[in-house]
Design a protein around this nucleic acid. Sequence first.
DNA 1: TTGAAAGCGCTACCAA
DNA 2: TTGGTAGCGCTTTCAA
Lengths: 332, 332
Amino acid sequence: MAKGRTTLKQLASILGVSISTISKALNGSHEISEKTKRRIVEIAEMYNYRPNKIALGLKSGSTNTIAVVIPSVQNSFFARALYGIESVISDTQYSTVVCLTKESHKKEVDNFDLLSNGVVDGFIVAVSEETQKLKKFSHFEDALNDEKHIVMFDRVIDSISCTKVITNDYKAISETTNNLIKSNRNQIVLVSAINNLNVGMQRTKGYSKAMLEAKLKPVVIEANRNDIEKVLKNYVVNNSLDAVIALDTDASFAAYKVVSELKKNIPNDIAVIGYMSERIAPYLTPELSTINQHSFTIGKMAAKMLLEQLESKENNDRTLVVDSTLSQRKSS
Amino acid sequence: MAKGRTTLKQLASILGVSISTISKALNGSHEISEKTKRRIVEIAEMYNYRPNKIALGLKSGSTNTIAVVIPSVQNSFFARALYGIESVISDTQYSTVVCLTKESHKKEVDNFDLLSNGVVDGFIVAVSEETQKLKKFSHFEDALNDEKHIVMFDRVIDSISCTKVITNDYKAISETTNNLIKSNRNQIVLVSAINNLNVGMQRTKGYSKAMLEAKLKPVVIEANRNDIEKVLKNYVVNNSLDAVIALDTDASFAAYKVVSELKKNIPNDIAVIGYMSERIAPYLTPELSTINQHSFTIGKMAAKMLLEQLESKENNDRTLVVDSTLSQRKSS
DNA sequence: TTGAAAGCGCTACCAA
DNA sequence: TTGGTAGCGCTTTCAA
């Protein structure tokens, strides 16, 4: 067998017919006689011929593949959203490739570059932090210009004309803060290992607003993932508090650890509400109350929107909001 | 601006020179005069020209991209391994795309199909369950035949000639069982929500071997993720036991839940050793002892091997083993 | 120093 | 019913 994948050309020379005849036969064209078709299909199978989808994409500009471009997959939010996306795409003729940007603008651009030329038909993207900071969006515009469809979720760019699916964390967290206040907690502390991120800042704002409106003093404790426990402990030792809102998994775990080490009780002494995978939160002792972003739903929605656009060939500019909700458990 | 991405052809017609001149100029060929080069580069930038990497790949068969093909990313083992892979690839000129197979043979084949034609230079793959069951490996052979490089990790196919990176779970779990026995536990129960998977079966074997050698009766409790807690509880209520080995995250959580509901103490009454993300295990109460598969290291290794092969153009057939180790904490 | 043309794998139009 | 040819975007050889 010749080296490399079997091509139409090879089949043509084997069978002594033209390339176009082979192509048509394999695509079931009625222009070709049944007899010839059978011969060709047989040989094609024998040589394990499979079309070069990329060459195909080069011509038609469509490959029935979509790209998911997200910052990371360590993060359970994106992992779940991805799962939601796949669950929708799986039932269709499309396949998916995913690219991880690690919050890097360059990686994001490179991926769009590679894939928007005949490899994929559309993108589902959660914009990287660096891209947001740099405000460099030309790769999105280029893709749109190449007639690719884009759906953004969670991390979106308002000025880009495409479908967006977002959460309303701001509202969810300020409501949560309010509820805490209503149930007579008034020394509520916010803990965050992600305040270097936009999401973190947004959530912090929601919390601060609610506190200020209740004439309470916002206290924000932030540090990186490795230090957050130490920094929080230091605070708790030297100050009094009756509730903690933790913005991410690490902060949530840190809160549990510190409270238990200092022999306090959750929720009696200190209420804790955190962000964490819904699969894990119920297993903590006591079960952690969480702000649930419905990542799976968001992923599903984003995928459905993209599919719709791919069908209708229309590029919509609309924003869908999936409400974050409080999953009330035992820790608050 | 014309619709679609700027091409060499367009630049050529704008500047009134030939396509080949543009191509050479943009590639810094010395055949082209400095003056012409400058003019061309300037216009190219103005029109935001970026080469079509796929067309390039069609020609050269190389794009400096590698594909990671894994069953899932919900699973923290693969998520961490992926992170390890990315951490190595990030420092190079290569980029990565990842494909999720959901244990489906068809998806795996589709992805290989799409990507092995000029999109990627090599594959890092953890073979799907279905592919293992069906024993259909021609997509791997085809890719190899297309001169793509393949590194398999964790889920490998011995008969395919490529580099493999694996764990030795079998040994790790039988040693763990032995240790438990030596510390006077003799009613050791295995709990698994993944015994539909090859990995699960392997681990179960390792456990059974150790038990049998110690003249102890192996007890295997298996169910799917949703039922495992109920099934385990039912067993614990009706039988006596002094240790649990849990094969996956769900089984580990279930063990904690059941033991705590039945007012028993970990590790005094019942020792628990499980499989779980090393990032989470220390946060359980008591901290969970785990069998650590060093997923990050495995990912890093696989990526390094692939890079090496890509450099040397040589296809190696060797198997590297990363030892799983016991991370002893408070639960055993 | 520049350009024409072939070719990567494929489809589609037009001619035979 | 079949085949020749152009063209998708690009590089590269050979000629001018």
